[in-house]
Design a protein around this nucleic acid. Sequence first.
DNA 1: CACCAGGCAAGTA
DNA 2: TACTTGCATGGT
Length: 221
Amino acid sequence: MTMTHEKILISIYEAMSARLGPSNWWPAESPFEVMLGAVLTQNTAWSNVEKALNNLRAAGFMDARTLDELDEESLAAYIRPSGFYRLKAMRLKGLLAWLRDSCDYDIAQLKAHDDLALRESLLAVRGIGPETADSILLYALGRPFFVVDAYTRRMFSRHGMVSADVQYDELQNFFQDALPSDVALFNEYHALIVRVCKEWCKKNTPRCELCPLCDFMEYAL
DNA sequence: CACCAGGCAAGTA
DNA sequence: TACTTGCATGGT
């Protein structure tokens, strides 16, 4: 028996979803907070990002215009626990300038822009690469872009579905070409991959013992 | 003590 | 194009 690519990916999704339940991602209180988190979590543990976001919230800076009025050095001090803080302060300033120029700090106005134009525009910001851009597009702006990260590449290459050195866009197309362009599906799929890898695939073991994806592959093959 | 975490860009060959 | 390095804190 053969399965279509879509059915395989949906079955993996169903297996993870049955194990873990709803993710309710992205963990944030507003689209703006999603954007800040997307930059702050670059190569950084989320627990450290939370400390930085809490600092900004407690100081009353969880607002684009207000935060852009803060000088870069002070911003760096608030986000210190998230690591790479001087670099990230510069990157956040770039993101804030983008918000100023593209929608006068009013994120609701961005719905007038089309998907691909927004993505190109975000990628032009210093410090916003493909994963950060797609995280913002999907989780803050509700656009149908599949977010690819280190977990996604590790999980699907380990199971022989893509090569280990697959490029970002190539892996993104692997999902986007097979699955319906559904924001809710892309949202939950990426969240489940991250949750599965965090909870079950912590070590570089050749095969994870309790991973739902492994369970599915055993069943399917 | 070493190693890693939901990347990215600049420099080098 | 492909590979290397800097960026930095906090948890295990």
